[in-house]
Amino acid sequence: MSTSTAPVEPRKQFASSIPLWVRTDQPRETGMGYWKGPHSKIISATKGFQEYRQIHLADVNPGLWPPTRGVETEIPVERKIDGVAEITFQSALSPLRGRKQTRLAFKDEVNVFRRTLLYFGPPYSSRWYDLAEPGEPVGARALIYLRRRDGVRASDFRTHFVELTDALAATGMLKELRTQTFLPWIEKFWDTPNVAHDNPVDQRFHASLILGFADPAARAAFFKSRELQSLSDALAPFTSAVHAYEVSEALTFVKDGAALPQYQQ
């Protein structure tokens, strides 16, 4: 793993993420296809979005993060996520502009999902690092959720999380890096009808990362590297679980504030 000498200044965004579990009474491919098709059209019409991206996760996802003492890195099968809706707003008032369309999305959720959760942080606390050269594609991604260890103050966790993301940005191996830290989870903010929202305290997350790589081989090399193991060991006092998912597709439906006629990969 090479190290970049020039620090990268992140762009701050107002973003949220919605982990999703598709219904199990139909083939998984049916649910993922409906999310990509009819459901995406409802979401894409929402006012106030700067970007709307679907993160589709591989069906088989035991966990990419290296084993770390005292940290849960194996993803429990019963809580394994199928995908994440990543929404970036134009402004802090944007969620209010989209309420009418959001109600339509609420009603449609039951057609595809069995459980949905909403995580969001303070406005402009999400950090995007521009690491790829202009026009350079991202050929593989990983999505990572982190759970704060009991007894660790939220401020200490956030401070170390920023240190971690800055270190990741400096490795020279990433083509994309997006981060979020979450406010305490409250069910009523996304209490959609006929869909489960169970989220026990010991299963909640407090931050996320999206890592982009040149190709799957670069992703595999990153997760096996000694440098990442060192970063993980330093993270362990602050974190009780790190669930790293292999991303199968990252599809953009709204970009730069405009709905696209066809999603971009």
Rank of each mutant, 00 (worst) to 15 (best):
G31H: 04
F14S: 04
Q13V: 12
T3V: 13
P10D: 06
D25I: 07
R28K: 12
L20W: 10
W35L: 14
S4R: 13
G33P: 01
G37L: 03
T30Y: 13
R11I: 07
G31T: 03
T30W: 15
P10T: 04
V22H: 09
I18H: 10
I18K: 05
G31L: 06
V8W: 02
T5M: 11
K12L: 13
R23M: 03
W35E: 08
P27N: 10
A15V: 13
R11L: 07
V8R: 10
P7I: 07
T30I: 12
K36P: 00
A6P: 06
E9V: 12
G37Q: 13
A15E: 04
S4L: 14
S17I: 15
T3C: 01
S17K: 07
K36V: 00
W21N: 01
R28I: 07
E29W: 14
W21E: 01
S4I: 11
R23C: 04
D25V: 07
S17T: 12
W35D: 10
A15T: 14
E9N: 11
P19D: 00
V22G: 05
G33R: 09
W21P: 01
T3N: 06
P27F: 12
T5V: 12
I18S: 12
T3W: 10
G37W: 08
I18R: 07
A6G: 04
Y34P: 02
E29R: 13
T24N: 10
R23V: 06
P19Y: 01
P7S: 05
Q26K: 15
G33V: 01
G31K: 03
G31Y: 00
Y34D: 14
W35F: 13
E9D: 13
L20K: 04
I18C: 09
A6S: 14
W21A: 00
R23Y: 02
G37N: 15
D25Q: 02
D25A: 06
R28E: 12
A6R: 15
P10H: 09
V22N: 10
P27L: 08
M32R: 05
